[in-house]
């Protein structure tokens, strides 16, 4: 896989397709020789981003809008955009991890995304919200990918 190539996927805005999206992104990570821990981190972050996107994909009285996932293979990083084409949402960042002892059952997704990735930012345009995440590529992974 060459640098600067883009791999795009669009899924229906339904929870049952989130697994397909995260496995597709993981396949990109495998192709560019990211180490297993980095791939696991990306899978979790993409899964959480898709969870949020699907949650906001359905507007009242309408069918769920699709969710787009785009992976850009950069020389020094894998950049992933997850775009919700339904209702925009504007989370507070950085997110605080809920205190474990409070036993909250919700509210960890965004904090997990930020902990798993090297950068996470939210972009809003025309009612769409994009979560842009970057995972830096270790030198060894870059060298291995170039040798393929």
């Amino acid at each position: 896989m060459k640098d600067n190539e883009v791999i795009c996927l669009q899924i229906p805005g339904e929870t049952e397709y989130v697994g397909i999206a995260r496995h597709a992104v993981d396949a990109v990570g495998e192709q560019i020789s990211l180490p297993p821990d980095a791939r696991m981190a990306i899978k979790l972050a993409v899964g959480e981003a898709c969870n949020n996107a699907v949650k906001h994909a359905r507007q009242a009285g309408s069918e769920a809008h699709p969710v787009s996932v785009a992976c850009r293979v950069q020389p020094d990083a894998l950049e992933i955009d997850v775009t919700n084409h339904g209702n925009g949402f504007h989370p507070e960042v950085p997110a605080a991890m809920p205190v474990a002892e409070a036993l909250d059952e919700h509210g960890r997704g965004l904090a997990l995304m930020e902990m798993m990735m090297d950068s996470v930012e939210f972009l809003s345009e025309n009612g769409n919200t994009t979560v842009r995440m970057r995972k830096n590529r270790p030198m060894a992974a870059m060298a291995a990918a170039m040798a393929l």
Binding site: L44, N51, H106, R108, G109
Partner: peptide, 10 residues
Amino acid sequence: EYLDSTGLGI
């Protein structure tokens, strides 16, 4: 093989 924040909540 995989556990996300929804699973943690459960």
